[in-house]
Design a protein around this nucleic acid. Structure first.
Lengths: 240, 240
DNA sequence: CGGAGAGTTGAGCAATCTCAATGTCTGTGG
DNA sequence: CCACAGACATTGAGATTGCTCAACTCTCCG
């Protein structure tokens, strides 16, 4: 798309980007080495521990971030405290509501995460000069919208059993950075409480349904968090 | 953004566009008169009656369409027939999943609708040459994503009463083309069945909750479809 | 007037929630 | 190394919300 000019000043990738696994899949794949160099002057890598709040609902946004590893939980709460998780972000998703001054969701590190942070103005400037980058982000946004709608079916029309199976299948499908086939062996990035908030269920119902799937031999659980799926097709069937 | 050159061949708006009320709000607002002329060579205006299917889930997409008036219902169904409405589109939304070969949802005219149809390749070509247009559509997509997430809270965490109130408030807020303040007087674009499928409720529960809101004096209903809201703030409170 | 389609209402039932008790893991201090 | 606190998860029993099934009503239209 963008011709890659090689000259003495720009043919080298920035150090930060050289080791970035999210680069090819994510939005930075739309950038030439020169553009990466210029963008990387405004980025820095940061780490957050599981549980840290990254963004509060309705707070001003000052920066965006590319997810490099880990899982981020996006959620909204009603006045009386009822909470709903409205999305999960994996590498190489972009964190932060583009072109808005305020966040529309709260974001929290669900696991330990690594981010590549870029200031709001820097990214927006680069987008403005670089339609291919905006296009790439557009494709990501459209995929997020597809996934949100897929999830609305789960929330509105599935039973508790199907919801839990769908959640496990979702994680199996996304946790692997390669992002291809669903994975049969993984750690849950969310507590039972968060799973309940994602599925619109109580923690007790989530627990009961997980126990049932275990009793039926569809999954094996060790240490609460680790899941093994002997037969992904059988899990898939339980998704409704 | 785009300088508007006035010359004898291009200063006139296409006839179709002159009377288009969606133009300023919608994506066409990003186009200069010249660009509108060139786009309009590929567009045609079509009407559909309430109930007509516009797009089937998983079917190839051959064209996009701007909604000029009316309401479109986007939905998904599970194998066993359970249905979930995953979005409503009003003027000036763009119908059709951009940059995909297949639709991810089914689309049906919820009311009589007028559309400005453009072939898939024509719109994608114009987008390619015109980053400002893609940007405009990007903003619309981001707003749709915000709305989908807002609705996930309703589906996952609200009671039947709050769901129905939220639905009425949503319609009150969007039905007016001006799209500013919520409207106190409107016709429901959806049957009780569709409302149920939007809210993840049965038709009976929807009916009972509407009756309850009526009994409580929050709304007045005439002829099943027409709604009057004496005090929008009181309806708002019921949304949870 | 009568039939079809859409909506409402009622009664009983089932899935999920609430509340409460119990179990398991992890880290800390003696 | 063990005891214990605290967080998180599981399990049970009863309450509740929303669903199912069935009867009835309203409106439109021939």
């Amino acid at each position: 798309m963008q011709p890659v000019r090689k000259d003495i000043h720009s043919s080298e990738l920035p150090i930060l980007c050289q080791s970035c696994e999210a680069r090819h899949q994510g939005m930075c794949g739309a950038l030439s080495p020169e553009q990466l160099v210029s963008l990387s002057r405004h980025t820095r890598r940061v780490h957050h521990a599981a549980g840290e709040e990254l963004l509060a609902d309705a707070m001003p946004i000052t920066s965006y971030a590319n997810v490099l590893s880990g899982v981020i939980k996006l959620s909204k709460v009603l006045e009386d405290g009822r909470q709903q998780v409205v999305g999960l972000q994996f590498a190489p998703d972009l964190l932060g509501r583009l072109f808005a001054t305020e966040s529309r969701v709260a974001a929290e590190a669900a696991s330990d995460v690594a981010l590549c942070v870029v200031s709001k103005s820097a990214l927006e400037n680069i987008i403005r000069e670089n339609p291919a980058l905006e296009h790439r982000i557009m494709l990501q946004t459209l995929r997020e919208l597809d996934e949100a709608r897929e999830w609305m079916v789960t929330l509105g029309r599935k039973t508790a059993q199907e919801k839990v199976a769908s959640f496990l299948y979702l994680i199996a499908s996304h946790i692997d950075p390669a992002h291809g086939e669903p994975c049969a062996n993984f750690d849950l990035p969310l507590s039972r409480n968060d799973i309940g908030d994602f599925l619109g269920l109580t923690i007790e119902t989530v627990s009961r349904q997980i126990s049932k799937l275990k009793a039926d031999g569809v999954i094996e659980i060790t240490n609460y968090r680790h899941v093994a799926v002997p037969d992904l097709a059988r899990l898939r069937i339980r998704c409704g």
